[in-house]
Design a protein around this nucleic acid. Structure first.
Length: 846
DNA sequence: CATCGAAGGACCC
DNA sequence: CTCCAGGGTCCTTCGGAG
């Protein structure tokens, strides 16, 4: 093709194909050269054509939007502007700068782990992945333009010397466990985003930290020589007990006692000590320091008043650094003004391009164009944009909820023969069934995913009456779906390059009555930390889940075909009550913490954080040290040391070594997460158990899916029950729901999660009523700027319809406002207008 | 007319 | 020589069943 046409095409393609130097470690490279190579390598491939096509579609979307934009009248814009301003002030009113949210992110995680375990890789450009796809690359490789999500063969063109190491997830998982233990010390409710990333709320920790003696903020440098031989090289024969491997003072081990510290504090030989201050920065530094000491890997962190900002901040000083954004409106606004929209989590390539087309590239523009955006995008989308532009986002870190689906997919050369396709399908179903079994899942929907050699993806789903879980059951459905597709293509065979099977719409497996768990779970979370309550025991099976999805943020996922039709007057009534609920919970925890610390120096809850005298047994000592995978792969004269079995593996071949680790992990803890749910309430003696319990608490939702398996028969249901207060609204009609409600907390007592008082009733309706009242008061309290103490029971009848009050008053957690009953709202159930309108809801409306 | 399931996408890591 | 992953979540649109 001639240059003109080609370049024009490339121009558009670049946005999809070109490397985006969004990531750290890519400054100052010859981007043009790199892009040229990428293009030349891709040209003509099916993938390339596919991208071209998508690019085209995006362009059409943009054209459409531009067209709509052109038809907007002054009138409309003006009206929109007013509307926007209203929302802004509402959001502004709810701005919360009191929290200290931290986002931690390991640097080039997978690559770093591999480098740590194989020093030879240290000075070479390397990446983890395969010839077809890289997961991550080290900083050395990034200089060549090699980065995550880039196929290996292209990376090789950019950097012929690139070493590609196959990923070993089990190892990363093990390391991840280590850092999570540290995270838990600062926020037992932290949310793990992925193996190497997490959000933590440091607020409580900081509060307690203020009164900590210096000894509690002192940490020892590891004296072991690192495989990488980085810092102080030390004699091999490190301490026999490796006490020096673990930070001197910290919860889980006797080592953490100040006494021990002092004894070692002498820092006899080379064992230097680090003392950290009481500020957030210091606390975060300390955390990073500990991570490095323990795993020999570095992490970066961002400190800000909310999740979205923290995330952006953690990227600021990426390799091994941290950045704090002051908790003042001015600082936040200024920070946001210059923030490129693409940096915001949730705004990807497509969104960026569309916004760019509207002349919006940074958040300042975003704010300026809100009126326009509100007319061109869906409510969910523009609300999100609005929050971003104001530097607002969730200040409450939600724990992960239970998984919603499970799947397996595989890419292969080209598969056109039906028999092979069927057998592959069966194989996938088998794998999936196996995985599901591990977590005790059963689902009603089976989805078959197919991608042909032209990269066109197609999904076909079918929902059954009842949930299934076995190979045969899944295959029976998947097979039909596949068959239909094959027949559909008739004479022509399906030329597949990928096939996947997914199961969703989980239902509580086995005996457990679906419902109750959430209720009980919720109630119990109330006293989650009171270590003695027997309820604790049950709680592990329930996952409290405030239903909230406050997932990070997704702006215009689907295209927001500017529905200008969206009557402003009708708009989002949904508020995210959840936030209130969660806040109530959070607040409660805070109170407890405060109480605990004043009374006992934090014996119960947070023992892990504040207590050198931690009550959790003594067996812990070795835990941190030994568990450390950092010792892993330590090259010795004749091999590597397995971090799991601690045996020498006679090999220098990383792959062999990794396989060994896999085996060990497979045996010992096939499923670390689900393996230790303390079922007996008796043994809490060993620290290990304490930990396990703690893990249950904090992982609830994230990893306890198995024991807590999906509740409810349908998600809607589970959401509905998330909140006790809503229960009363449950439609009796729904047999399922109704039935579920019956399953009242048998042995446990009803304790109001808000006021903490035990309620003298077994009747959930009554109880819910009480909770509602409490909640309402709390909400009122907050809305009034807490000037007025809990006042009389909120008028349950009041109902101002006036303003279509959008957005929740305070922290608007990510979008999802448009749904009539925002799933994230504490009031999950669809209160179809009738019935006692949820009281919480009412509040939001005024 | 409100709800729901299916299909297609965007995004994240 | 080999020519772009896999696991998830959520949003939006659309059409048919209730």
């Amino acid at each position: 093709m001639d240059n003109g046409a080609a370049s024009a095409k490339d121009e558009g393609l670049l946005s999809r194909m070109a490397l985006n130097d969004n990531k750290a470690g890519m400054e100052g490279l010859d981007r043009d050269m790199i892009n040229k190579i990428i293009m030349e390598t891709s040209k003509g491939s099916r993938f390339y054509e596919s991208e071209l096509k998508r690019e085209h579609q995006v362009n059409q979307r943009i054209e459409k939007i531009m067209l709509q934009k052109g038809q907007i009248t002054e009138q409309q814009l003006k009206k929109a502007q007013a509307q926007v301003e209203r929302v802004v002030s509402e959001l502004e009113r709810g701005r919360d700068l009191t929290r200290l949210i931290v986002h931690v992110d390991m640097d080039a995680f997978y690559a770093a782990v591999e480098m740590r375990d194989c020093p030879e890789l240290k000075d070479k450009p390397m990446a983890v992945g395969s010839m077809s796809m890289l997961s991550t690359s080290n900083y050395h490789a990034r200089k060549y333009g090699v980065r995550a999500a880039m196929p290996g063969f292209i990376a090789k063109k950019l950097c012929p010397n690139l070493v590609i190491v196959p990923p070993n997830f089990n190892k990363y998982r093990a390391v991840s466990e280590e850092i999570r233990e540290i995270f838990a010390d600062y926020d037992p409710h932290f949310q793990a985003v992925s193996l190497d990333e997490a959000y933590l709320d440091f607020t409580d920790h900081l509060e307690q930290r203020q009164s900590w003696p210096e000894s509690s903020r002192t940490h020892r440098c590891r004296t072991n020589s690192s495989p990488t031989g980085e810092e102080h090289i030390e004699p091999e024969e490190a301490a026999p007990e490796q006490i020096d491997l673990s930070p001197v003072l910290f919860e889980d081990s006797p080592n953490s006692s100040p006494f021990l510290l002092s004894s070692e504090g002498v820092c006899a030989s080379g064992g230097a000590c680090e003392v950290f201050g009481t500020s957030v920065e210091e606390a975060v530094k300390e955390m990073r320091f500990r991570i490095e000491q323990k795993t020999m890997l570095t992490a970066s962190a961002g400190i800000a008043p909310n999740m979205m900002l923290a995330k952006v901040c953690s990227d600021k000083n990426k390799p091994n650094g941290q950045y704090r954004l002051p908790s003042t409106r001015e600082a936040v606004m200024e920070f946001v003004q210059n923030l490129p929209v693409r940096k915001v989590s949730g705004i990807g390539k497509v969104s960026e391009k569309m916004l760019n087309a509207l002349g919006i590239s940074n958040c300042a523009h975003l704010g300026q164009q809100m009126a326009l955006l509100s007319l061109l995008f869906s409510e969910t989308a523009w609300h999100h944009f609005m929050q971003v532009s104001l530097g607002l986002s969730s200040t409450y870190i939600p724990r992960h909820e239970e998984r919603k689906s499970m799947s397996t997919e595989r890419t292969f050369k080209e598969l056109s023969r039906a028999e092979e396709q069927f057998s592959l399908c069966r194989e996938l179903c088998g794998d999936l069934a196996e995985d599901m079994k591990k977590e005790g899942l059963k689902g009603k929907t089976v989805t078959l995913k197919l991608k042909n050699v032209n990269f066109e993806v197609k999904t076909r789903a079918q929902t059954l009456q009842s949930a299934i879980a076995t190979l045969d059951e899944i295959f029976a459905v998947a097979k039909d779906l596949l068959k239909t597709e094959i027949e559909n293509e008739s004479p022509q065979p399906l030329r597949l390059r990928l096939m996947g099977v997914r199961v969703s719409a989980f239902v509580s497996l086995d005996d457990k009555k679906p419902l109750q768990k959430s209720i009980i779970g919720f109630l119990q979370t109330g006293k989650t930390d009171s270590t003695d309550s027997t309820q604790e025991m049950h709680q592990k099976q329930e996952k409290e889940h405030f239903s909230n999805h406050s997932v990070p943020a997704w702006p215009l996922a689907g295209l927001p075909s500017a529905q200008k039709s969206q009557k402003p007057g009708e708009g989002g009534r949904t508020s995210e009550p959840q936030s209130f609920f969660q806040r109530a919970h959070a607040k409660r925890l805070q109170l407890q913490a405060a109480k605990a610390s004043t009374e006992e120096g934090g014996q119960g809850r947070d023992a892990s954080v504040s207590a050198p005298t931690d009550g959790c047994g003594t067996s812990a000592a070795p835990t941190e040290a030994q568990a450390s995978t950092s010792g892993c792969g330590r090259l010795t004269s004749d091999g590597l040391t397995c971090p799991v079995c601690f045996r020498q593996v006679e090999t220098t071949d990383l792959n062999v070594f990794n396989e060994h680790i896999d085996r060990c992990l497979g045996n010992s803890c096939g499923n670390p997460n689900q393996s230790n749910h303390p079922d007996s309430e008796s043994d809490l003696e060993s620290e290990a158990e304490c930990k396990a319990l703690e893990g249950v608490n904090r992982c609830r939702g994230e990893c306890t899916t198995e024991s807590a398996k999906a509740n409810g028969d349908e998600e809607s249901q589970s959401k509905r029950e998330a909140q006790p207060s809503l229960i009363k609204d449950a439609h009796p009609a729904s047999s399922v729901t109704g039935a579920n409600h019956e399953t009242t907390p048998q042995s446990s007592v009803l304790i109001c999660p808000v006021c903490q008082r035990t309620q003298d009733t077994g009747d959930l309706t009554l109880f819910n009523h009480h909770v509602d009242l409490c909640l309402n008061q709390e909400v009122l309290h907050e809305l009034r700027g807490q000037t007025s103490p809990p006042k009389d029971p909120p008028s349950l009848t009041r109902n101002r319809t006036e303003d279509t009050g959008h957005l929740l008053p305070r922290q608007a957690c990510k979008g999802k406002s448009k749904r009539r009953d925002s799933p994230s709202s504490p009031n999950p159930k669809r209160t179809k207008g009738h019935g006692p309108r949820n009281t919480i809801d009412k509040f939001f409306r005024l």
